[in-house]
Amino acid sequence: MEKQTKSACETCSHYNAEGLKKLGVNTESFDFVVALAGNPNTGKSTVFNALTGLRQHTGNWPGKTVARAEGAFEYNAQKYKLVDLPGTYSLLSTSEDEEVARDFILFGKPTLTVIVVDASRLERNLNLVLQILEITDHAILCLNLMDEAKRNHIEVDARILAKDLGIPVVATSARFKEGIPELLKTISDLANRKITCKPHKIKNIPKNIEKAVEELSTSIKKEYPTIANSRWLAFRLLEGDKQVIEGLRTGKFV
């Protein structure tokens, strides 16, 4: 994947604010907007509460937060808005939750996305992570429920994982507030673009499909040179995703 050069406009906060406002997010007086994504039941809402101090109810249920929950926090004199997206297993299907989560990351273009995963079920969770990394370049992996993983004798090497995924990885146990300071610092560093991500892109797709994806994504890039996720748009087009087709027509991605 060749690296896109970013125009000054694309990285400034005003640019993000436009897209977010369309999705009904009040961006006034915030320096950054952070999206919180992840599978159901990964303690995503606990992370949300730990970061914002809000007490949103977190049930031990897959799919509790259907509507978007929003909160805010301040770090190093900068104001962050945190948006808790519904927990989903994937972004490829068409359920209501997935659309909310996908639209936010795709059209809203938050400053960065924190992806919360369950350390003891990493493989299952990576399915969603890899999909999100196709959409956005600015992401942090929050390796949550480390306490539970330890109980289950599962060891995760955060360093190797960070190298493989090309994004910062922070190990946390949000229930016990462990790792939250580190997470905050990483969010701040990435928001201020002190660190850069080179996210992993899905590689081992069968040849005939890869060719089709390449062809489509090239022609999308020709039309929208600044687009970062042309490959993902190509995936969606090949699935005949009505909303993405509509988005392309109306130029929602620009």
């Binding site: 990493l122 399915n127 890899l130 090497d157």
Partner: peptide, 17 residues
């Protein structure tokens, strides 16, 4: 493909007792 890729990544970074 995505799941296969996930398995590969997990193989190198996760140790299960």
């Amino acid at each position: 493909s995505i799941y296969a890729e996930a398995s590969k990544i997990v193989e190198s970074s996760v140790k299960k007792d």
